[in-house]
């Protein structure tokens, strides 16, 4: 119970800091948001019109009061109105986020499907040809620029073999973008899991488990995997937030309308409410991902008190 309370407190502090920071980042702009907004309404706003808008939007008040107001309305689910689309920011995000979420979830699925068997075989057959292949492939995979890979895939499948309609709206069309998005994370996580598996396979408890007569499958799945997963879980949950933003590149290549491109467009148009909203959502997802990882890891390994054992590197 005390642990739960402490976790909640830590979560609230982090969320508070995250919102404050994202508000600050969006508001240290050298562009006057009131002016930007005025330009949106009038072609050539006069000085009075700008001042009026500034008063209306509460931009004349000190920053911390603006923050409190913004936080208050954010808590009520009101993130303001997009300057670009004139819709509420929430409805815009509600429209774009699912597309990106689909993309990211599918990418994560690929990563899981790839990581566990590949790193397991590589670790069990250390120094075999397969292991060497995996090592080279993961180093290459981690060095591949996402945007370039995207184009290669596009060129190879859409142009050379136009069997699948690459740019479309259904689930099949998500296959290639999600694979491209998954490549770096898959490389990192295969490397990470292989290393933790190897160090666990050499531990005393594996030798003793064999001496107790347990079968290899049982040792690997019941004991070694369980001990090797926590770093991977942490990597995963931390990566979700990054993938949401990182999907901007993939979305741009495959012409998808997700939250990544939405955010980039908003920045280009200096659409502050939208930027604020997107940043907030992405950061929140990151924070919750982390908390989720903590909870899962606590279950996997009850002794793990220190949640920062592995950072993704």
């Amino acid at each position: 119970m005390v642990v739960f309370f402490k976790r909640c407190r830590a979560l609230i502090i982090t969320l508070f800091g995250v919102t404050a920071l994202s508000f600050l980042m969006a508001n240290i702009s050298i562009v006057d948001p009131a002016e930007a907004y005025a330009r949106n309404i009038f072609l050539h706003p006069t000085e009075e019109q700008i001042v009026q808008i500034r008063n209306e939007m509460g931009l004349d008040q000190p920053l911390y009061e603006q923050y409190i107001q913004w936080l208050g309305s954010s808590l009520r689910g009101d993130l303001g109105i997009s300057l670009q689309t004139k819709n509420t920011v929430v409805s815009d995000i509600g429209q774009k986020l699912p597309i990106t979420m689909q993309l990211v979830s599918l990418a994560l699925l690929w990563v899981v499907v790839l990581t566990i068997p590949v790193s397991l075989v590589a670790a069990l057959r250390q120094n075999s040809w397969f292991d060497h292949l995996v090592r080279v492939a993961t180093i290459l995979g981690a060095s591949l620029p996402n945007f370039w890979l995207g184009f290669l895939v596009l060129l190879f499948f859409a142009v050379t073999f136009p069997i699948v309609e690459v740019v479309d709206g259904n689930l099949v069309s998500l296959v290639f973008p999600s694979l491209v998005l998954a490549t770096p994370l898959a490389s990192i996580s295969i490397r990470l899991l292989r290393a933790t598996l190897l160090s666990n396979l050499n531990k005393d408890y594996v030798t003793y488990a064999k001496a107790r007569g347990l079968r290899n499958g049982r040792i690997v799945w019941g004991h070694v995997m369980r001990n090797s997963l926590p770093p991977l879980v942490m990597l995963f949950c931390q990566y979700i937030g990054h993938m949401l933003a990182g999907s901007a590149i993939v979305e741009s290549i495959f012409s998808m309308q997700g939250i990544g491109t939405h955010l980039v467009d908003a920045i280009m148009a200096r659409d502050l409410p939208t930027v604020n909203g997107c940043v907030l959502i992405i950061a929140m997802i990151f924070v919750f991902g982390r908390t989720l990882a903590d909870i899962i890891n606590k279950r996997l390994n009850p002794r793990m008190i220190n949640r920062d054992e592995v950072l993704y590197d």
Binding site: G17, G241, I267, L272, V275
Partner: peptide, 19 residues
Amino acid sequence: DIFMAFPALVIVLSLIGAL
């Protein structure tokens, strides 16, 4: 923790918006 919650791209975007 607070800083790590922001993906690099998000920070770049915000700062480019600002600066």
